[in-house]
Amino acid sequence: SNREKAKQAFKELLRDKAVPSNASWEQAMKMVVTDPRYSALPKLSEKKQAFNAYKAQRE
């Protein structure tokens, strides 16, 4: 689905920018907000969900 693709793109973005798994949401956003993939997930709640999944995978 498109939403799954968007989630993957967002997680790839976090990986590409080397966002550490112990980063806070605010720290992570400063690192990725300028990338076009930041807008892949329109809802903030979805971004946070993908971010938390990313962190869980990295730990």
Score class of each variant (00 low, 15 high):
residue 9 A to I: 14
residue 26 E to F: 01
residue 44 L to S: 10
residue 59 E to R: 10
residue 5 K to I: 10
residue 29 M to P: 11
residue 29 M to Y: 13
residue 24 S to F: 01
residue 55 K to Q: 09
residue 10 F to C: 02
residue 22 N to C: 09
residue 17 K to H: 09
residue 26 E to G: 08
residue 30 K to S: 10
residue 35 D to R: 00
residue 21 S to N: 04
residue 23 A to T: 04
residue 18 A to H: 14
residue 22 N to I: 00
residue 23 A to W: 10
residue 14 L to F: 01
residue 14 L to T: 03
residue 8 Q to L: 11
residue 24 S to W: 00
residue 13 L to C: 08
residue 27 Q to Y: 03
residue 55 K to E: 07
residue 36 P to L: 02
residue 3 R to N: 15
residue 20 P to Q: 05
residue 35 D to G: 01
residue 12 E to F: 01
residue 52 N to I: 14
residue 1 S to K: 15
residue 15 R to N: 14
residue 56 A to Q: 14
residue 7 K to R: 10
residue 24 S to N: 04
residue 30 K to Y: 00
residue 16 D to L: 02
residue 10 F to P: 10
residue 59 E to M: 15
residue 19 V to F: 00
residue 7 K to G: 07
residue 37 R to Q: 04
residue 55 K to T: 09
residue 37 R to V: 03
residue 3 R to E: 12
residue 5 K to T: 13
residue 2 N to F: 00
residue 1 S to D: 06
residue 30 K to I: 01
residue 57 Q to W: 11
residue 54 Y to R: 00
residue 42 P to S: 11
residue 46 E to T: 02
residue 24 S to K: 09
residue 2 N to R: 07
residue 10 F to L: 05
residue 43 K to L: 09
residue 33 V to N: 15
residue 8 Q to H: 07
residue 1 S to T: 13
residue 3 R to H: 08
residue 34 T to W: 03
residue 29 M to H: 07
residue 33 V to H: 15
residue 56 A to Y: 06
residue 5 K to L: 10
residue 56 A to N: 10
residue 39 S to C: 11
residue 8 Q to T: 12
residue 6 A to E: 15
residue 43 K to G: 13
residue 6 A to Q: 13
residue 42 P to V: 05
residue 56 A to P: 04
residue 13 L to R: 04
residue 46 E to C: 03
residue 41 L to M: 10
residue 27 Q to R: 07
residue 4 E to K: 06
residue 5 K to M: 13
residue 40 A to L: 13
residue 33 V to C: 15
residue 42 P to Y: 05
residue 9 A to S: 11
residue 43 K to N: 11
residue 29 M to N: 05
residue 23 A to H: 02
residue 26 E to L: 06
residue 20 P to V: 02
residue 3 R to T: 12
residue 46 E to V: 01
residue 16 D to V: 01
residue 42 P to H: 04
residue 13 L to F: 01
residue 21 S to I: 13
residue 13 L to K: 06
residue 39 S to V: 07
residue 54 Y to L: 12
residue 16 D to S: 04
residue 27 Q to D: 09
residue 21 S to K: 15
residue 9 A to K: 09
residue 39 S to L: 07
residue 36 P to M: 02
residue 35 D to L: 00
residue 2 N to K: 11
residue 19 V to K: 01
residue 53 A to S: 12
residue 35 D to I: 00
residue 41 L to K: 06
residue 1 S to W: 05
residue 22 N to A: 10
residue 30 K to P: 10
residue 12 E to W: 00
residue 53 A to D: 14
residue 5 K to C: 11
residue 21 S to R: 12
residue 48 K to C: 00
residue 52 N to E: 15
